[in-house]
């Protein structure tokens, strides 16, 4: 990473924390258009684990149009300092879905790239 890139990077990133089953995931809050009740258009992503009820949905934009990902609960937006963000360990997974981790919480939170879920 160049010095220019470091200077341009924000000091904090807004991460929207959501619950899927027993797990907490983070998504880039700027990618979320709105939070809504789950409807017929909403889909569940098995890779994130089993939903408890999936009554909420994150609405976001993809190349194919609007997508709605089911989640159980939305915890809220957390301004995560850059120092608490980590890239995915290179050997852990090659899945493009998980793009990194946040160490700001009690345990690491997997950060999901929403457009790649659809």
């Amino acid at each position: 990473m160049s010095a220019r890139t470091v200077q341009d990077a924000p000091e904090t990133v807004d991460i929207l924390l959501v619950e899927v089953g027993e797990e907490v995931y983070g998504v880039d809050a700027s990618q979320v258009l709105r939070i809504d009740r789950a409807g017929p258009q909403s889909f569940a992503l098995a890779a994130l684990g089993a939903l408890r009820h999936g009554r909420r949905t994150l609405v976001y934009w993809t190349d194919s149009g609007e997508a709605q990902l089911k989640v159980d609960a939305v915890r809220g937006v957390s301004a995560v300092p850059l120092a608490c963000l980590r890239r995915m360990p290179p050997a852990a997974t090659r899945s493009p879905l998980a793009i990194g981790l946040s160490l700001a919480e009690e345990r690491p939170v997997v950060l999901i790239d929403l457009p790649r879920t659809f």
Binding site: E23, A47, L48, A92, T93, S95, A98, L101, V110
Partner: peptide, 12 residues
């Protein structure tokens, strides 16, 4: 408590 990763082999 570990944080599970999506789409990884079972041994991870």
């Amino acid at each position: 408590r570990l944080t599970p990763l999506p789409r990884t082999p079972a041994f991870v």
